[in-house]
């Protein structure tokens, strides 16, 4: 096998470049998240990186409360346009105003020296 995929390392490297990349299983045509070296469900290894559009919809939402005066913050599950679901944070709205069904789009930031994708309301 030539160049077996290093899913986690390559994903992080793309993210550092400000790109949200998904692994697509060429057998089923389905994208997965998180990136794995085999496609979940099928075991296919015929995988290819594709760039996500960054468009998504909030599937579920919670506000993680902190001890005051630290503010609560959002944690959401985002259904990406390409199919897979990921955990992320929606910014640009008060945490309590992030609702299920909200359309969002990806933005790339650095937080604690880690490249991160967050989402803004559309």
């Amino acid at each position: 096998m030539s160049n077996p995929i290093q899913a986690e390392k390559e994903y992080r490297e793309y993210l550092e470049q400000g790109r949200l990349m998904l692994l697509r299983d060429n057998e089923s045509g389905k994208c997965m998240f998180y990136p794995r070296v085999v496609a979940p469900g099928t075991g296919s290894t015929d995988l290819e990186w594709v760039e996500a559009s960054g468009k998504g919809t909030v599937y579920s939402v919670t506000t993680v409360r902190q001890r005051p005066p630290s503010p609560g913050y959002n944690v959401s599950l985002i259904d990406l346009e390409e199919g897979p679901r990921m955990m992320a944070r929606v910014e640009g709205l008060a945490p309590d105003d992030v609702k299920i069904g909200q359309k969002v789009t990806a933005r790339f930031i650095q937080e604690d020296d880690v490249a991160l994708v967050v989402f803004d309301p559309v």
Binding site: Y34, S60, V61, V64, Y73, V75, M87, A88
Partner: peptide, 26 residues
């Protein structure tokens, strides 16, 4: 949890169940 979740600091396990609860409410 895999790094793909922990970077967003869910207070697990509570936040995972909270996400399920909100979905059930919705």
């Amino acid at each position: 949890l895999g790094g793909v979740e922990s970077v967003y600091k869910p207070r697990n396990p509570v936040s995972s169940y909270a996400l399920a609860a909100h979905r059930h409410m919705h």
